[in-house]
Design a protein around this nucleic acid. Structure first.
Length: 716
RNA sequence: GGGCGAAUAGCUCAGUUGGUAGAGCGUCUGCUUUACACGCAGAAGGUCACAGGUUCGAGCCCUGUUUCGCCCACCA
């Protein structure tokens, strides 16, 4: 006798244990079946999953379960990411609450604390994924900062360095004054802001000139003024000099293509140390760089005694006042423009001249463009392909060094006795140049994505030649969010082609972004995502998964609202109640239905490979409604299979919902009651009911694993 | 400045090659029918953003417009 209501918590406990015990999701290594492999986009190990993760995980789990039921040798590898800056920040903040400052700790002490955090939070992430019913092969779990992955990272660094694709140099980088580290171009988001455009008079050899700037504080670091070479009105000034106000520096007037004739005054102040454009001009014209803003965003001594030590935004005000006092401010007009901010903390980026490590990307990008052109990697929905292409064709070098402690330390050693850099797979004892032993390792760590971009093959044991790599690489599909196409997807394709000589995955499936009621992206920093574990407690995993699937057409953003979960909860209940009706009818039948005293099978776990659809023969005993429901089941199964192969999981969900609820429950079961409770042979109708119910469980299983396992296990 | 997405019932949204507008929620009318009120039977409710065009026929294809949103971009 089935309970009156389905108990999601009990089902989770039971089936999680069952699945784990049998390790049924581990691949059948020797089955000879075609592999179907997914690698999980590793979540931040010290974060918490938000609803956006759940959508992606649910999609992946559905694909895995569906493929497995269709006879594939499936493998889904879980893992977590050390998430450099994000993690270092949470650990720093937590320590601060205990009164400990990172600046007063040694690197080793801090890292020990960070690892403690990692261990603690890892457990919660794993718990979330397990309660979601994810069919991972936990035996292959990986962490981007564990030993095996660290080996892969070093191998990659050394290989790229030896190949000349990694270099160190002094360039303008995006600097976050709050986190005090360089970040990559991709980590900068541009924000339209209301600002001011300041028009400032400079004295020139040949009379006054006026420059327009949004950042007057950088005037202190000006080392030239530039004009467009084709600007007839100003051409004659090129080669002459002018005086930078406040610091009274005599600087040249140069001609450069990047200057627009018709913007502002046509004169551009050039600050090579604090602007990417100006840095370029400086290089082309051999201009000196004067650093006037330091790593904390404060004015340096070079900015002059009046401003040294001021915060850059205070300095702006004071510089403006000083210019006004001197009568150099021509006008100040309101101006709206894009300001670069750090995507992790929102701090306004300071372009800073700094020595960093870079990866030369063009040579890596070219093959990665070709494989997508040839459809060896496809994007779904296909429009993302263009996004990928346009970024790849204009790719810039990747700044990979970060001034942090939490991460893969750069495997470069500097020698105190010579200029040689020792770049090594294992920590060296002596300088590879002079043999000296006074070595010092680079203090910086690598960008967190420098480990993530190896993610299809590093979890399989690369650089060792493992059987996993042999069997399961390339993977089948990558399921992720479109926002990390540049950070991750593109770089994985490049890395895999470079180090594996093959694509990392055949398909890229981009899910939509989950937003809250106000349309904001769900994120940890906004704190606008409910805890998935709370949702699972309140509504059940099956309801959660089903609702998300049903509401998420491929690649379309979802506005998540907890009330919508009623849809899934109600459907779970409907499935349960229909099963109760069927099972109570079975119990009323005196004779055993299938064979002699047929025992209940042990759930899907014991019968994973199963064809969908109709295996019940049409016989003369079947009534018209029997034939109708059986053919409707057939159509539903075919439609569902097709929806899955077309990545249209929302269609699959609604198709099954419609069939089960409206065809099976509303019509067939109601009609069946007449025969069930009337006189005559009940065997035919019972057989059909059981068949349709059982087949429905198979169709629903990928999206609602718990309730379907539970029902499957009590079917005769 | 480029590129992309969205606009369909009161709300949230489906609608895959063009062929009589759909679901869930909400509303209204009936139902304590022994699977289910997390339910059953039924009803109301839409010039498919706007303007043109192609077609026997357009929510769907083409052109343009409007309104939102996102991504990219070295005009200080």
């Amino acid at each position: 006798m089935m309970e009156k209501h389905f108990d999601p918590a009990a089902a989770r406990k039971r089936w999680n244990a069952e699945w784990e015990a049998r390790r049924i999701f581990a691949p059948d290594e020797d089955s000879g079946a075609e592999p179907f492999v997914i690698i999980l986009p590793p979540p931040n190990v010290t974060g918490v999953l938000h609803v956006g993760h759940i959508l992606g995980d649910t999609v992946q789990d559905q694909l895995i379960r569906w493929k497995r039921m269709n006879g594939f040798n499936t493998l889904w590898i879980p893992g977590t990411d050390h998430a450099g800056i994000a993690t270092q920040k949470v650990v720093e903040n937590a320590l601060l609450k205990e009164g400990k400052k990172r600046s007063e700790m040694t690197r080793e002490e801090f890292l020990a604390e960070a690892w403690k955090w990692k261990e603690h939070h890892h457990a919660r992430i794993v718990e979330q994924m397990k309660q979601l019913g994810c069919a991972f092969d936990w035996s292959r779990e990986a962490f981007t900062l564990d030993d095996a992955r660290s080996r892969a990272v070093r191998e990659v660094f050394v290989r790229l360095y030896e190949k000349g694709l990694i270099y160190r140099g002094d360039y303008i980088v995006n600097w976050c004054p709050l986190d005090q580290t360089a970040i990559s171009d991709e980590e900068v988001t541009y924000d339209e802001r209301d600002s001011k455009l300041y028009w400032v008079k400079y004295d020139g050899e040949a009379g006054e000139i006026v420059v327009a700037t949004t950042r007057p504080e950088t005037i202190l670091g000006d080392t030239a003024v530039a004009v467009n070479p084709d600007d007839a009105a100003k051409k004659h000034l090129v080669g002459r000099t002018c005086i930078v106000p406040l610091v009274n520096r005599k600087v040249p007037i140069v001609a450069d293509e990047v200057v627009q004739k018709d913007f502002g005054s046509g004169f551009v102040k050039v600050t090579p140390a604090h602007d990417l454009n100006d840095f370029g001009i400086g290089q082309r014209h051999n201009l000196p760089s004067v650093v006037v803003i330091d790593r904390e965003g404060r004015m340096t001594k070079a900015a002059g005694d009046a401003f040294a030590g001021l915060d850059r935004f205070d300095a702006r005000k004071q510089v403006v006042e000083a210019l006004e006092r001197e009568g150099r401010m021509v006008k100040i007009e309101p101006y709206r423009h894009a300001v670069g901010t750090h995507d992790r903390c929102g701090t306004v980026i300071e372009p800073l001249l700094s020595r960093q490590w870079f990866v030369k990307m063009k040579p890596l990008a070219e093959p990665a463009i070709r494989v997508v052109e040839k459809d060896e990697v496809t994007f779904y929905p296909p429009r993302w392909r263009n996004v990928y292409m346009s970024w790849m064709t204009e790719i810039r070098d990747w700044c990979i060094s970060r001034q942090l402690w939490w991460g893969h330390r750069i495997p470069v050693w500097y020698c105190a006795d010579c200029d040689h850099l020792t770049v090594a797979r294992t920590d060296p004892d002596a300088c590879a140049g002079c043999g000296g032993t006074r070595l010092h390792q680079d203090e910086d760590v690598l960008d967190t994505w420098f480990s993530s971009w190896l993610w299809t093959f590093s979890p399989m044991g690369w650089p060792e030649k493992t059987s996993d790599l042999e069997r399961y690489h390339p993977t089948s599909v990558l399921v992720t969010a479109p926002e990390i196409i540049f950070f991750w997807v593109a770089r994985m394709i490049m890395a895999s082609l470079e180090f594996m000589g093959e694509v990392p995955f055949r398909h890229v499936f981009l899910t939509g972004i989950v937003r809250d009621g106000q349309g904001r992206k769900m994120s940890k920093s906004l704190g606008n995502s409910p805890d998935p574990l709370d949702i699972i407690d309140n509504w059940g995993t099956d309801a959660f998964r089903f609702t998300l699937s049903m509401l998420s057409p491929p690649g379309k953003d979802v506005f998540f609202d907890e009330e919508k979960l009623e849809l899934g909860r109600n459907f779970t209940n409907k499935i349960w109640q229909a099963s109760r009706l069927v099972m109570s009818a079975v119990e009323k039948l005196d004779a055993p239905l299938v064979g002699e005293g047929a025992a209940a099978p042990g759930g899907f776990a014991s019968s994973w490979t199963c064809a969908f659809g109709n295996t019940l023969a049409f016989t003369p005993e079947l009534a018209w409604e029997d034939r109708w429901i059986l053919s409707a089941l057939d159509r539903c199964a075919a439609d569902t299979q097709r929806s899955f192969s077309d990545w249209r999981l929302n269609d699959a969900a609604s198709r099954i919902y419609d069939f089960f609820w409206h065809d099976f429950c509303d019509w067939y079961l109601e009609l069946a009651k007449v025969r069930l409770y009337g006189e005559g042979d009940r065997r035919t109708v019972l057989a059909v009911m059981l068949h349709v119910l059982g087949q429905s469980m198979k169709l629903i299983h990928p999206v609602m694993p718990y309730v379907t396992e539970e029902i499957w296990s009590v079917l005769p």
